[in-house]
Amino acid sequence: MYTGKGTKSDPYIVDNWEDFVSVAYETAGYVKFADGGGKIDMNEHYPKGISKVNINSTEVDFNNWTIENLYTTNGGFSGNNLGTLKNLKLLNVYHTGGYLLDQFNLENCTVTGIIMSTPFYVHNYETKSLRYCSFNFITEGTVSRLVSGSDSDIYDAAFCHFNISNYADDIYPFGYMRLKNCLITGETSQRNAMIVSNSRYDFCVFDFDAPNCSKGNCSSTNVCIYNKDKAPNLTTNTNFIGFTTEEMKDPQKYRDAGFPMGVE
């Protein structure tokens, strides 16, 4: 049974899946996983997968707990557009439909797994803002707007690392996002893949192996760097500067290009 009062200074403390789901659904307060870390294997709780877990909390601090083997059939964690998830390690996700982490702010979260396309072009992943997060995904099929805001809202991602591999169909990883100081890596061999797509980019680095990728609809106020050996057809606006693979590792080249690279 959980303890605490659900306030910021005295959050509900949980240490298992059942209590977490119960308290996160029923209350709008603060929830925190117990100190010391832990692991929840979703294959033990829901081997058939989950369709959606509604979370109405203001904030859930996973306190560096790991949730692994989450198999989603129609959505993962769904928020109320106000909440924040932090310090979560969500590993080995098999996401097959709906939104994986919908309507949350994410802070200091790590997410890995396989994102499968659905028969429709949906946002496979929708959040409000992302800070200090890392994502390592394999996508299967056509995946549009993998990390995305909504049609009317632009969401922020800052200081995040996205590593995305796609081997089957096309990929359009970003939509309605403003990415600042993000590292984007990965690979795709698809002709119509648009790695730089439908978003705004400032001080981002693309080291994406995408020989056939084309330019998407995007803008950038501040300089971004991409690997022109790996993505020679990624011709974008003037704020995108192509480096060779060797130049990608040369700090001085970045400084010369106006990129805020530290001086050793």
Partner: peptide, 10 residues
């Protein structure tokens, strides 16, 4: 400020 990206997906 970037946290480590796990190398293994599965």
């Amino acid at each position: 400020l970037m946290i480590e990206c796990p190398e293994k997906i599965m």
